[in-house]
Design a protein around this nucleic acid. Structure first.
Lengths: 349, 349
DNA sequence: CTGAAAGCGCTTACAG
DNA sequence: CTGAAAGCGCTTACAG
C-alpha cells in the first residue's frame, strides 16, 4: 500500500472535540446526536456548526458499546447468493441505509462445523445489532443457534423458509402465484398441468398448494407431483422424462432456473416449447426474459420483502410497534403478478 | 415478538467473568484471547476452561473500540448484486469467516446524494474495519470518498473496476479470456469475430484487447467494435442489427447475459445460433449452461478473487506483508478457462 | 509471566 | 435545559 498516495487521514474527531468547539458538554452533544430533545435552540445551532466544521461522525463502535445497541442490522443468509437472496439483501440495504443504519450481511456456510457456525453467530451478535433478519431459515442451519443466542429484546424477522412457531416471519403469496400460473395454463386449453416442485415446502401456502387448488377449481385431473433439487441438472432429467409422456402438455416449474432445466430436458427428447409443451417458471429471475423462449412466470419482488423486514425492525425499535409474531405476514401486492411470455401457448391439438 | 418462545438470553458473560472464574486478571484473559503469548501453561488451561464453561465470546464492539481496530472487513460494492459481485462476496465471506472475521457488506447506491453516500461511508469506516475491499470501483462513486476517508494504515484492496493509481487492485486476465474465446471462434473457421463490449473498459488488459490481439495474431480483419450497456435489451438491439449483416458469423459478447440478449436479437431477424452465427459469452454465469443453446464462455472464478483479496488484507495485518500497490495483481489459474458449449460451431459455408 | 490502571468514544442515570 | 461522573467491555502501556 503506497500510503503516500492517500491523503494522510488525521485522527477523526470525537464527541469531545465537538463539545469543546461548540462550548458545551459532551452530554449535550450526545443528546443532540440522539434526538435533539431538551436542548436550547442556540446550543443546537452551535453543535450543528461544530459537527459540520469538524466533519464529525460518531463512532458506531463506541455508541454500540455504551448503549448496548449498535446502529446495525445483521442479515443472515445461506452461503449461496441465489436470486431471491440478492434481491432481499438489496432491499434491506436500501431501507437500512435510508435510515442511516449499516447492514452486516453474514453468509452462514452449512458446510462449516456447528462450532464454527456458533462462533460466527456469537461473534456477529456480540456487536449488539439493532435487529436480526434471517433469510430462508432452514432446519438444521444456524437459525436455531441464532434464535437461541440473540438477546430476547432484539427483534428478529425471518423471511421465508421453514415456519418457526412464535417468530415473526414473512412469506410471499406463493399460493396465489401457483394458482395464477396454473390457471393461465388451463385457460390456454391444457387439460391439466404438471408441477415440478422445488425443495422445502413444508407449509400450506405454497406454489404447490396454489397449483393443486387451481386444478381442483377447474375440475382438472391432478397429476403426480415431481420434486427436484435446486440443481437445474436434476430438472433437466425430469424434463427428459416428462417429454416422453405425450399426456404432458403443460408444466409449471418451481422456479425459473428449474423451468430452463426442464426445457433443456424436453428439447433433448425432441419436444419444442411452447409448441409441444408449455412451461412456466416462478420468480421472474432476469434470465426469464433472456432465454429462448422467454419464460412465462410469476414475478416476486424480493427487494420489497427485504425492505419490509427492515422497516418492521425499525418501527419496533423506534415506535415500539410489536412484531405480531403469532401470525406470519404474507406480503404481496401489484408488484407480484403473472408475466406472460413466450414459453406458454395453447396446446396443439 | 413473542419473547416467551425464545429462551431467555441472559446477559452474555464478559471478560471479567472469565477472569474471575479462572482466577486470573483481566489482562491475562485479554492476552490469552489475542495470542496466548507470555502466559503460563496452567493459566492458559484455566482460562480456556472458563471460556468454555461460560461460553464466552468477546465483544466485537469493545475490542474494536479499545484496539481502534475491529475484527471486521468492510466490503463495498455497487447497489446491484450482479453475478460477479455475488461470487466475490461469497469468496470474501468464506475467507473471512475461516479467519474468524465478520464481513460488513455495504451496497453503495449511486442514486443517493453524495452526502448520503458520505454518511454511509463514514459510518461504516467509524467501525474501524481491519481492512476494506471495494468491488468494481468506478469513477464518480463512493470509491474516492472511501479512499479519502479511510485511515491510511488500513489496507484497501480494489477488485476490478477503473484503475486507481497507487492502490492495490486485483484484476482477472480478461485479455487471456478474450483471446481464448476469439481464437476458439477463429479456429472453428470463422473469417473474423465481432465483439460487443461491456461498458467501462478503460484499461489495456481487457476482454476487448484480447479479442483484438487474437484477430491480429491470426491476421484476421478487425471489425468495428460494438458497445452495449449492461442492459440485455440493448444487446438484443445490437443482435438484431448484426443479424442483418451476413458477414457476421461469429460474435464474442462481453458477458453471458449480453450474449443471450444478442442471441435473442439474432433470432428475431431469423438467424439461428450456432447454425448461422456463433455466439460466445464471458464469465460462465450459471445461465450459460441453462440456456438453449448453452453458451460457450470463459469461466471466471469470482469467489477465488474475493478470497484472494481477503487474504491479502489478512496477511498485511498479521504478518505485515505489504500490499504491493504500484503493480496491480492479475490473478488467474486453471479455474479460469474456456468452456465450449453449444452456442459456437463452424461456419456453415 | 502477571496485574492495576488508564483509556478507547460514546450513553445514561443522577443532580441541579 | 445542562453538566460531571460512572460505565459499556475490552486493550495496552507501565510496573513489577
Amino acid at each position: 500500500m503506497n500510503e503516500s498516495t492517500r491523503p494522510t487521514a488525521k485522527k477523526s474527531p470525537s464527541i469531545n472535540d465537538v463539545a469543546q468547539l461548540a462550548g458545551v458538554s459532551v452530554s449535550s452533544v450526545s443528546r443532540y446526536l440522539n434526538n435533539g430533545a431538551h436542548l436550547r435552540a442556540d446550543k443546537k445551532e452551535r453543535i450543528a456548526q461544530a459537527i459540520a466544521m469538524l466533519d464529525y461522525h460518531p463512532s458506531l463502535l463506541a455508541r454500540g458499546l455504551a448503549a448496548s445497541r449498535s446502529n446495525t442490522i445483521s442479515l443472515f443468509s445461506g452461503q449461496r447468493l441465489l436470486y431471491g437472496v440478492t434481491g432481499c439483501i438489496q432491499g434491506v440495504e436500501a431501507a437500512a441505509s435510508a435510515a442511516g443504519i449499516v447492514v452486516n450481511v453474514v453468509l452462514l456456510d452449512e458446510r462449516q462445523s456447528p462450532d464454527q457456525l456458533r462462533q460466527t453467530i456469537k461473534s456477529t451478535l456480540s456487536a449488539n445489532p439493532l435487529g436480526v433478519i434471517i433469510d430462508q431459515p432452514r432446519y438444521g442451519t444456524g437459525c436455531d443457534e441464532i434464535l437461541r443466542s440473540v438477546n430476547k429484546d432484539v427483534p428478529v424477522v425471518l423471511i421465508g423458509g421453514n415456519r418457526r412457531q412464535g417468530q415473526c416471519q414473512l412469506f410471499t403469496y406463493d399460493d396465489r402465484g401457483g394458482y395464477a400460473v396454473t390457471q393461465h395454463l388451463l385457460r390456454l386449453g391444457h387439460k391439466t398441468v404438471f408441477h415440478v416442485a422445488v425443495p422445502e415446502e413444508d407449509e400450506t401456502q405454497t406454489r404447490q398448494s396454489g397449483w393443486r387448488k387451481a386444478l381442483e377449481d377447474a375440475g382438472a385431473r391432478i397429476p403426480a407431483l415431481y420434486r427436484t433439487s435446486w440443481d437445474p441438472k436434476d430438472a433437466e432429467a425430469i424434463g427428459r422424462k416428462l417429454g416422453q409422456d405425450d399426456e404432458v402438455t403443460a408444466i409449471f416449474a418451481g422456479n425459473d432456473e428449474i423451468a430452463l432445466g426442464i426445457i433443456r430436458g424436453l428439447h433433448a427428447v425432441g419436444k419444442r416449447v411452447p409448441d409441444d409443451v408449455s412451461v412456466a417458471g416462478f420468480d421472474d429471475n432476469p434470465i426469464a426474459s433472456l432465454s429462448i423462449p422467454s419464460l412465462t412466470t410469476w414475478r416476486q419482488d424480493f427487494e420489497r420483502i427485504g425492505a419490509f423486514a427492515t422497516n418492521l425492525i425499525l418501527n419496533r425499535i423506534r415506535q415500539g410497534t410489536p412484531l405480531e409474531s403469532e401470525i406470519p405476514y404474507y406480503i404481496g401486492d401489484d408488484a407480484d403478478q403473472l408475466i406472460v411470455r413466450e414459453s406458454t401457448a395453447a396446446p396443439r391439438s
